[in-house]
Design a protein around this nucleic acid. Structure first.
Length: 572
DNA sequence: GCCGTTTTCGGCCCGACTGTTTTCAGTCG
């Protein structure tokens, strides 16, 4: 699949054209096309071959020609030419808070700045203030922006932002001047990484709210403070933006600030088509500017002829069309899960006993927990030898007798070895309540070999679930080379459930793959990959990923009763 | 550069804040 490559090049062209000073609508056209290709659920090579590129929204004659060139040659002459005009390093400068295309263009054309190091030096030497539109404060802000970028490399994992956001929210809820307050932005959509936190509040005394907002205990730095909008940096470097609006506008503002940007662009276009104007203050009549709606977010969707779209779906991946036809999935709920299938114990590399884990899982309201320690050859994680399995099963039996209304399932996370064989013999695999298979070594195989290896693992009759199917670690390790489509086809054939690994730095499969697999009618399991009972609540991030992948209750094994699960797994 | 029941040209989402200015451009979301 070259979809990623094509969309990356188009995004970069958009940035370069911005710096070059092209009109906004042209660069936006590149970005729209890039986004639509990024989320396309078809292989762009196939679309190219069948001459259907112009059926992709936002792709016309000119872009189709460019995309064809990328797909066929792996490069684009036009892009190479642009890079000769403007060094690619300029793109990194756009990442700096406060720097946009115009300023980057001035820095390049007037001072010859092409990368972050040169920019830092120029700031320190006071060179920027010589330029029109730049001053001493700009220099200081850019230096701060560079520092911030280097410290955080941009984005934060969902769980950290989730905790920060909810702590802040609880603080704000204590403010008597605030009527309504909610998280908004990517944290409300539960995206896998968060750039900054957005909070929305309604109040009749915005100035008081802003005074209260900036006094939060973890605020390190106030970036800006106005009556409707303020921004702070927390001491863990997360930026938090708050908007304060009137009650009349709260729903419209919540819709607007939840995004995504792409979803909103589509919503606004739809509003215009229907004779309205939609902004953060409400839904208005296009002609008379008369206020129609805005208090309640759900009302906005209704007035536009749409079913309510849950925040996790708002990525402009077809949700608006489907909402129009009243065909949205009834998403799996955050309380619909009866247990966790993927938990490690002290039998391998977990830090808690099976009994401790089970006790906590029961307290969470679960009906079961699956203990899945590593298999024997994974020495680094203290994998359990075949001889010890019987002992472990007996321990679980004993604990199960002690706990009422709860079941510990004895599973395993069995390694798929480099040759595609599983790390336990079938005689041993047979003893488990269920078997996860997964890749833990030899990540650097060729795509073909890795795909064959995983497929061979799935062909084992005792393999039930495929753990973390792409092996990525967000921000640390790229997915291994694997043909996800082939894996999905094989899983369909063998009845293997794909895991949505819910550990915050995995979230693997990711939302896009989940949606893709669901369209092929695959089934899923959720597992936290907990290595301590304290990790069990990470389940909510897996559920969020499932929701972002359009999954319903019936698509996920964890929502079934123990009886049904045993029947489905065929191990009664 | 895309798009079309306002269609082949002229639109394309837009408001708030900052820092630079002295009425506004640039950036952000």
């Amino acid at each position: 699949m070259k979809n990623q490559l094509v969309s990356e090049i188009l995004y970069k062209i958009a940035d370069l054209l911005d710096i070059k000073g092209e009109i906004f609508f042209k660069t936006r056209a590149y970005r729209m096309a890039a986004q639509n290709i990024e989320v396309l659920d078809e292989d762009i090579e196939v679309v190219t071959k069948e001459d259907r590129l112009q059926s992709i929204p936002g792709v016309g004659e000119a872009l189709a020609k460019k995309i064809k060139e990328i797909v066929e040659t792996g490069r684009l002459e036009y892009f190479e030419k642009l890079k000769k005009e403007m060094p690619e390093g300029l793109l990194a400068l756009l990442e700096i808070l406060g720097l946009g295309p115009k300023k980057v263009s001035a820095l390049y054309n007037k001072l010859g700045i092409t990368d972050i190091e040169k920019l830092r030096k120029a700031c320190l030497n006071g060179k920027l203030r010589e330029l029109d539109g730049f001053g001493e404060i700009t220099e200081r802000n850019i230096l701060r922006g560079i520092q911030l970028l280097e410290k955080t490399s941009g984005r934060m994992l969902l769980n950290v932002a989730y905790d920060d956001g909810n702590d802040y929210l609880n603080y704000l809820k204590k403010c008597k001047k605030i009527n309504n307050v909610s998280l908004a932005g990517s944290i409300r959509r539960m995206k896998e990484t968060i750039g900054d936190l957005d909070i929305l509040a309604s109040s009749k005394n915005p100035d008081d709210v802003m005074d209260y907002f900036v006094k939060y205990k973890d605020v390190e730095n106030v970036l800006m403070k106005g009556p409707t909008k303020s921004s702070v940096i927390l001491n863990d470097n997360l930026q938090v933006d708050i908007r304060v609006v009137s009650g009349e506008s709260y729903g419209a503002a919540l819709q607007y600030f939840t995004g995504s940007k792409e979803h909103n662009v589509a919503m606004r276009s739809l509003a215009i088509k229907k004779g309205y104007k939609l902004n953060e203050y409400g839904l208005f009549d296009k002609e008379t500017e008369k206020y129609i709606s805005g208090k309640d977010e759900k009302e906005i969707y209704k007035k536009l002829g749409l079913d309510y779209i849950e925040p996790e779906l708002r990525e402009n991946r077809g949700e608006i069309e489907v909402a129009k036809n009243k065909k949205l999935p009834k998403l799996v709920g955050y309380d619909d899960i009866f247990g966790d299938f993927h938990v490690h114990s002290i039998w391998s590399d977990g830090s808690d006993s099976i009994e401790t884990v089970a006790g906590y899982a029961k307290k969470m309201g679960y009906a079961f927990v699956g203990i899945t320690d590593h298999s024997q050859s994974l020495k680094i994680a203290n994998g359990v030898s075949e001889e010890k399995i019987e002992k472990k099963i007996n321990e679980i039996k004993k604990i199960n007798k002690k706990i009422s209304n709860f079941r510990i399932l004895c599973g395993t996370e069995c390694d798929i070895k480099s040759d595609g064989k599983l790390d336990y013999s079938n005689k041993v695999l047979k003893k488990f309540d269920f078997v996860y298979i997964g890749i833990h070594t030899g990540f650097k195989m060729s795509k073909n070999d890795m795909t064959r290896r995983i497929i061979s693992g799935m062909e084992n009759e005792y393999a039930d679930f495929l753990a973390h199917p792409t092996g990525r670690l967000i921000g640390r390790r790229d997915p291994y080379e694997v043909d996800v489509e082939k894996i999905i086809d094989k899983a369909k054939e063998t009845g293997t459930f794909l895991e949505i690994n819910s550990f915050p730095d995995r979230l693997d499969l990711d939302d896009l793959h989940v949606k893709f697999a669901k369209e092929k009618d695959l089934k899923f399991v959720l597992g936290t990959d907990s290595h301590s009972f304290m990790h069990l609540p990470f389940m909510r991030f897996g559920i969020a990923t499932a929701r972002r992948g359009w999954l319903e209750k019936k698509d996920i094994l964890n929502t079934y009763s123990l009886k049904e699960i045993e029947k489905i797994l065929g191990r009664e």
